[in-house]
Design a protein around this nucleic acid. Structure first.
Length: 266
DNA sequence: GAAAGGCGTCT
DNA sequence: AGACGCC
C-alpha cells in the first residue's frame, strides 16, 4: 500500500462528496488530508503500525480510521459505498482536463451525461453551451481534451523526461537570459516515472522566457499561458520507440523565492 | 472533518 | 466579478 494509493483514494472521496453536493468542509478536509499524505516522507503503512497517523496535519480521527482500514484490509468500505452511488462512467469524466467535480455534477444532473461518449456527443451537437458555466470555448476545449485523454497520456520514464528537460533547457537558454532552471516535482524526487514535469526558472527577462517556452517546437497544445505560469502538452520520443505526450508546466520565480519554490513544488 | 492559497481561463 | 480547475 503506497502513500500515493492512499492519497488517490482520499482525493476520490473528496471528489465524490463534491459531486454529490455534500458539505464543503468535508470535501476540503479529504483533499487536504490527501495532499498531506502525498507529501509524506514516511510510509503511511508504518505510521498506521505505530499509531502515528494523527501526527499528520490534516488527518483527524475519522480519516485516520479510514486510512487504517485501507492499509490493513486493502479495501475501504466508505469509498465503495460512495462509488456505488454513481452510474458507471460518471467518475471517468473527472479524467478529462477542464472537468472537475462541479462540472461533472452539472453534466450528470442537468444533461444526464454519464460517460465520455455522452460528453463528446453533447459537445459535438452544441448542447453544452446552453448550460450555466459552459460556452462555445468550453465545448471546443472539451473536444480537444477528450481526444487527448483517449490518446492515453501514460506516465513517462524518468530518462525520457530528462531528455525532454534538457531539450527545453537548451531552447530557453538560447532565447532568454535564464539564470536558474530546474525540474521540480516527481522528477526531482527521482521517481522511475513521472506524470508531468514542473520546471522552475529565474530569469532577467520574464516575457522572453515565457514566450520561448510556449514556442518550444515539440509543443502540441498550450493549455494556459500567463505572465509567470504556463502549461503545455509536449510530444517527445520515447526511449522504447514512438511518440508520446507529456504535460509540462513552467513557473517563473523571483530570485529570492527560489528555495521556497523548489521546496513547494517538490 | 479539523484549520491553504495563488494563478489562469471562461462566462 | 465570480466560479471553476489545477498545481
Amino acid at each position: 500500500m503506497t502513500n500515493d494509493e492512499v492519497a488517490i483514494l482520499l482525493h476520490e472521496i473528496g471528489d465524490m462528496l463534491d459531486i454529490l453536493g455534500e458539505d464543503r468542509f468535508r470535501v476540503v478536509s479529504y483533499h487536504r488530508a490527501a495532499r498531506a499524505v502525498e507529501g509524506l516522507t514516511a510510509d503511511v503503512g508504518d505510521l498506521v503500525r505505530d499509531g502515528k497517523l494523527g501526527d499528520i496535519p490534516g488527518v483527524g480521527t475519522a480519516i485516520a480510521e479510514k486510512i487504517t482500514e485501507y492499509v490493513t484490509t486493502g479495501r475501504l468500505g466508505y469509498h465503495e459505498e460512495l462509488k456505488a452511488r454513481f452510474p458507471p462512467g460518471v467518475l471517468d469524466l473527472l479524467q478529462v482536463r477542464g472537468i472537475g467535480p462541479k462540472k461533472v455534477q452539472i453534466l450528470w444532473q442537468q444533461l444526464g451525461i454519464t460517460d465520455l461518449a455522452g460528453l463528446e456527443e453533447a459537445a459535438k451537437h452544441h448542447r453544452l453551451r446552453r448550460i450555466k458555466g459552459f460556452g462555445e470555448k468550453t465545448e471546443a476545449n472539451l473536444l480537444k481534451a477528450i481526444e487527448t485523454y483517449r490518446q492515453g497520456q501514460a506516465r513517462a520514464l524518468i530518462w525520457d523526461a530528462a531528455q525532454l528537460v534538457d531539450a527545453i533547457r537548451a531552447h530557453l537558454e538560447s532565447r532568454a537570459p535564464i539564470t536558474r532552471l530546474e525540474a521540480a516535482g516527481s522528477f526531482r524526487r527521482m521517481r522511475e516515472t513521472v506524470g508531468d514535469v514542473d520546471i522552475l526558472v529565474t530569469t532577467r527577462d520574464v516575457k522572453a522566457a515565457m514566450r520561448a517556452f510556449t514556442a518550444f517546437p515539440a509543443v502540441k497544445q498550450v493549455y494556459s499561458e500567463g505572465e509567470i505560469k504556463s502549461s503545455v502538452l509536449v510530444e517527445y520520443d520515447a526511449y522504447t520507440g514512438g511518440k508520446r505526450l507529456l504535460q509540462v508546466d513552467l513557473e517563473i520565480l523571483d530570485a529570492d523565492s527560489w528555495g521556497a519554490g523548489l521546496q513547494y513544488f517538490t
